[in-house]
């Protein structure tokens, strides 16, 4: 019911009074996305997109977020930044 993927906003343009849309980059793939549900989003922000509509803005520091979540769950792990 909800395949949603993260993408980076490249530009934002008003469509109608309170409707916005913009081009979102999903990693070498561009698509127009409706941004009316995240009116505070600006170019450079990451948003979560489902069926062409952004439903949430993603926090800036995703790596720290993930590790904080795991610590909260009592998960022990070693994770150096440059594992890629």
């Amino acid at each position: 019911m909800c395949l949603a993927v993260p993408g980076r906003i490249r530009d934002v343009k008003p469509v109608q009074e309170w409707m916005y849309s913009g081009t979102v980059d999903f990693g070498g793939v561009l698509r127009e996305v409706n941004l009316s549900c995240v009116p505070e989003a600006v170019p450079g922000d990451y948003v979560l997109v489902h069926v062409g509509v952004a439903i949430s803005i993603l926090p800036e520091e995703e790596a720290i977020q993930c590790l904080a979540e795991l610590e909260h769950a009592g998960v022990e792990f070693e994770y150096e930044e440059g594992l890629e």
Binding site: P6, F26, C66, L70, V75, E76, Y79, L83, E84
Partner: peptide, 24 residues
């Protein structure tokens, strides 16, 4: 892919699975 790759890392998946085995 930002916001996806880190949540697919095998060592993190393994770590959570081990914590789960300890909890269950």
């Amino acid at each position: 892919m930002k916001y996806k790759d880190i949540y697919q890392k095998p060592e993190l998946v393994k770590a959570v699975a081990e914590a789960l085995h300890r909890t269950t």
